[in-house]
């Protein structure tokens, strides 16, 4: 992450960014020197502090905080889910590649939690806090075997990952004013899509449920085989992109829906996540 580039980008939409950040250009140069040496892990903190000083309570800061806390909620939802799955004896087939895959995904979700917490704190805001006990992964009884039946666990995992992809996608436009935060969100977004791709492959395997028709990408509206998660896939059968009907270009309906993932609004995602929060 190049902090100088980020500032130059902000300057395009806010010509006074340097003045906002610090009226003394010399001091900013010091910051650049600091920025070039700072560890990658500390960048979100440094960024957050800068924006706090620069924008204080303006609407930009509030919107960004709202998006980041929304994202943090989803990351907690995912992290505790995989943590509990990994910790439940007999759920994930021992000695199979699934163990490593679930651990990898869990570790990414935990890293996202930590990154978002740091960024929100850096903004001078309070990160939302969740404990494992605040989540009900049966979705109030809809998935009673989520931690005792491996295919059910994977089915819920797929719903979480595809929801995550759609949630970040839906918020990108709200981060246009903060390029560094936008890029970070996009870098999380594609990781969630990689997870979704792999979980879908796991569900195709016999042990994972043998959902043979499933693909790593989303075909039409709700290809999961789980009607209870219809809201996760609402609108994924869209064929029109930027005013162009993709089927009119000579592509099948399936390919046209698979080639483009669709966003969900914050309200739609909160409604889905809410099913899993006590």
């Amino acid at each position: 992450m190049n902090i100088v580039n980020i500032l130059e980008e902000i300057e395009k939409v806010d010509a006074e960014v340097y003045e906002r950040l610090n009226p003394r250009r010399a001091a900013m140069k010091q910051f650049f020197n600091f920025g070039s040496k700072v560890a990658v892990a500390a960048v979100p903190l440094a960024l957050g502090s800068m924006f706090k000083k620069a924008y204080g309570q303006t609407s930009t800061a509030v919107a960004v905080e709202e998006v980041l806390n929304f994202a943090l909620t989803l990351e907690y939802l995912e992290y505790y889910f995989y943590q509990k799955g990994a910790d439940t004896a007999g759920l994930i087939p021992a000695g199979s590649p699934a163990v490593g895959a679930i651990n990898t995904i869990r570790d990414h979700e935990q890293a996202h939690v930590n990154l978002l917490k740091t960024a929100i704190t850096g903004l001078g805001k309070t990160p939302v806090a969740f404990t494992a006990g605040q989540f009900d992964y049966t979705a109030k009884g809809t998935f009673p075997t989520v931690f005792s039946n491996y295919p059910t666990f994977l089915a819920v995992a797929q719903a979480f990952e595809d929801t995550g992809v759609r949630a970040y996608k839906g918020q990108a436009g709200n981060l246009i004013g903060t390029p560094g935060v936008l890029q970070t969100a996009l870098q999380i977004h594609s990781v969630e899509a990689r997870h979704a791709s792999h979980i879908r492959q796991m569900r195709k395997a016999p042990a994972g449920g043998g959902v043979s028709a499933l693909k790593p990408w989303i075909t039409g509206a709700n290809d999961s085989g789980v009607p209870q998660v219809d809201p996760v896939y609402k609108g994924e059968d869209n064929l029109i992109q930027g005013g162009v009907n993709i089927t009119s270009l000579g592509f099948s309906t399936n390919a046209s829906t698979e080639a483009f993932d669709e966003p969900l609004t914050m309200a739609e995602v909160k409604a889905i996540a809410g099913l899993f929060i006590r």
């Binding site: 992809v165 970040y168 996608k169 990108a172 996009l186 977004h189 594609s190 990781v191 969630e192 899509a193 990689r194 997870h195 979704a196 791709s197 792999h198 492959q201 790593p216 990408w217 992109q241 698979e258 080639a259 483009f260 993932d261 669709e262 966003p263």
Partner: peptide
């Protein structure tokens, strides 16, 4: 954004 997540699904596969 609609395209990049599909590319990420491809990459993972």
């Amino acid at each position: 954004g609609k395209i990049v997540s599909v590319e990420a699904r491809h990459a993972a596969l």
